[in-house]
Design a binder for these strands. Structure first.
Length: 328
DNA sequence: AATCGAGGCAACCGCAAAAAA
DNA sequence: CTTTTTTGCGGTTGCCTCGAT
């Protein structure tokens, strides 16, 4: 039977034998892989090129680190996943010697369950609806090992966090959540902005500065044409999160870009910005009293909060995260 | 000792992006 | 510029192991 990916007859499938491993290892260490599609022929393997590539990347590469994940690695995965979502390859780049497949498997078999048992949605890292986490909280009543995220939610501690993206143009996001008015719900006085970015024009004030004017912030975002230079990538922190104002449906925020951006990513980012702007228009946000949106606490910033929770942990544990530096 | 089910992990599949022709 | 090929990724599947019954 032919193989779907390469159409070749008589390719072997399933687990690799030690002999096959040895052939592949020998071939690649002496000749390199070149074009993967030609590797099986040159290495004398009855496998498809794709299978060879996968075997090399996930198992034979000499720099691979085997064995179970350390608590530090686990924390790194959780923290980066909170920002990037299911970008396993990106996450794996922060864990030297680990593969995307390994990270994905570890997430699906272990971390996911752990988060859920702590009342957290593994997709968004937000608290699950009360019915969920009350149930799981009672399940864990005897457990003292609450996640930093859940602890932060429960303790309602004020947060002030800076995030700097090093490789790309510097970003400095400041969050200040001075008051919480609703347990586990919305921080009522959350505000944010982006600094150190010349394209950010009028909204580069730090939120805790006296002159901060939320209406200026929202006004700049909503009134900018898609082609303007206002940089909305700060919203990228909120991947897979939803933003909503009272009376409106949630809409999806665009993604953060980590490290160097390719042109393709820039296009995607621009599209996401456009979409965001469109959605704000569709929902009539530009016609609302922008200041009142913020002052009435009707904007849910819990997504920001959850995204950047437990940054104390991050600053300790993300030594391998070359793209980020976290600080208080 | 045999069976069953859950969990972990390696490998496969399909798709999309990137590169080459 | 278009088409084809290659590469890379994320989701999913299926096999193997191990513990419980």
């Amino acid at each position: 039977m032919g193989h779907r990916c390469c159409g070749k007859q008589k390719v072997k499938r399933g687990l690799w034998s030690p002999e096959e491993d040895e052939k592949l290892r020998k071939h690649i260490t002496t000749h390199g892989h070149g074009s993967w599609s030609s590797v099986p022929k040159h290495a004398g393997l009855q496998r498809c090129g794709k299978s060879c590539r996968l075997r090399w990347i996930n198992y034979l590469r000499p720099e691979l680190r085997r064995g179970s994940f350390t608590p530090e690695e686990e924390q790194t995965i959780i923290d980066v996943h909170r920002i990037l979502g299911n970008k396993w390859a990106q996450i794996a780049k922060h864990l030297p010697g680990r593969t995307d497949n390994e990270v994905k498997n570890f997430w699906n078999s272990c971390i996911k369950k752990k988060l859920m048992s702590q009342g957290l949605d593994p997709k968004t890292h937000n608290l699950l609806p009360k019915s969920h986490h009350q149930r799981s909280a009672s399940n864990n009543a005897a457990s003292s090992s609450q996640s930093p995220l859940l602890q932060s939610h429960n303790q309602q501690q004020p947060i002030s966090v800076h995030l700097t993206e090093i490789n790309a143009s510097p970003i400095n996001v400041t969050l200040s959540t001075d008051q919480y008015h609703d347990h586990g719900q919305n921080p009522s006085n959350a505000s944010w902005t982006r600094v150190d970015d010349p394209t950010f024009n009028d909204i580069t004030r730090l939120p805790h500065q006296q002159s901060t004017d939320h209406s200026t912030l929202i006004n700049n975002i909503s009134s900018s044409s898609p082609s303007s230079s206002v940089n909305l990538s700060v919203f990228g922190l909120l991947e897979n999160s939803n933003i909503w104002a009272s009376g409106t449906e949630p809409f999806e925020a665009p993604r953060i870009l980590v490290g160097e951006q390719s042109k393709g990513e820039e296009v995607v980012l621009q599209q996401e910005k456009d979409t965001l702007l469109d959605q704000m228009e569709i929902k009539g946000i530009e016609d609302m009293d922008h200041a009142s949106i913020f002052e009435s606490s009707s904007v849910d910033f819990s997504f920001v909060e959850s995204t950047l929770m437990s940054c104390g942990e991050i600053s300790q544990d993300l030594n391998s995260m070359c793209n980020f530096a976290w600080r208080y």
